[in-house]
Design a protein around this nucleic acid. Structure first.
Lengths: 129, 129
DNA sequence: ACTCCAGTACGAATGAAGTCGAACTATGCG
DNA sequence: CGCATAGTTCGACTTCATTCGTACTGGAGT
């Protein structure tokens, strides 16, 4: 990531939630989202899986890391969730012990309309065989 | 790229043009386009520049490589154009000496609606800093 | 305080992509 | 043929991402 400018732009409470929620982890502001960075973050099958799953069940507010049932070591998951957060795709909040994630759908729809629909419609391996 | 399966799926005349045109170089068929691959191909600023420029002036049919005025060595350009073609973003045809490229807009719109609009609206560096 | 648990941080190994020079191919022109 | 042009191919180098083990942090429960 080469030390992203996670510090200069707007960082803390992007939505200023109802104060019931824990603060969001540092993330790029909506106007700092870059298409090439977001696309790069989404160009990984595992991350695409994460975002799609999050999109499909966005009824529940946030989801902890274990909810995804990805059988990768924890350090790998941290890596990918961080990549998604730093690209601006996910917002993460610390709920006590667990860190829950949700897609920044409003921001992404505002900046890149239609992009999340593509992700939601994505299917991993298209059973052609 | 790791030896893409450019051989098994439909490869040659994807549109079967009016025979006035030279044949298209090998490319993945529409149904073989993969979102993560296309996103990966588009996650590079130079390639985004290429595709956007091609989209904005798609009146003319194809564009040769030098038309883009990218000051990179030829071997680099070959690399990126090939990456875009193998991802299914561009179609390339050999017109005598020059190899001209165009965006596979129909295929991409069919498979990933809205994606090209994002690319067309992209702007390189938004004067920050 | 002690322990469990969710997740981070660090660091190393691996591998893939980007960058580019140099030599090459193929077309077109005189 | 000889030369210029447009682009490819190869190989080397560098940089970056991915993967994951291990050690660590910090809240919750007893």
């Amino acid at each position: 990531m080469s030390t992203p400018s996670m510090s200069t732009p707007t960082v803390t409470g992007p939505d200023t939630p109802p104060a019931d929620l824990p603060p969001a982890l540092p993330e790029p502001a909506r106007e700092d989202l870059r298409l090439e960075v977001v696309l790069g973050a989404l160009s990984d099958p595992l991350r695409l899986t994460i975002v799609r799953k999050l999109l499909r069940e966005r009824e529940a507010y946030d989801h902890p890391c274990g909810w995804f049932e990805l059988d990768r070591p924890k350090s790998s998951l941290t890596h990918h969730f961080k990549a998604l957060r730093e690209a601006g795709v996910l917002r993460q909040r610390q709920y006590g012990l667990e860190r829950r994630s949700r897609v920044r759908a409003e921001d992404l729809d505002a900046r890149f309309p239609g992009l999340l629909d593509l992700v939601a419609a994505w299917e991993p391996a298209s059973g052609a065989g």
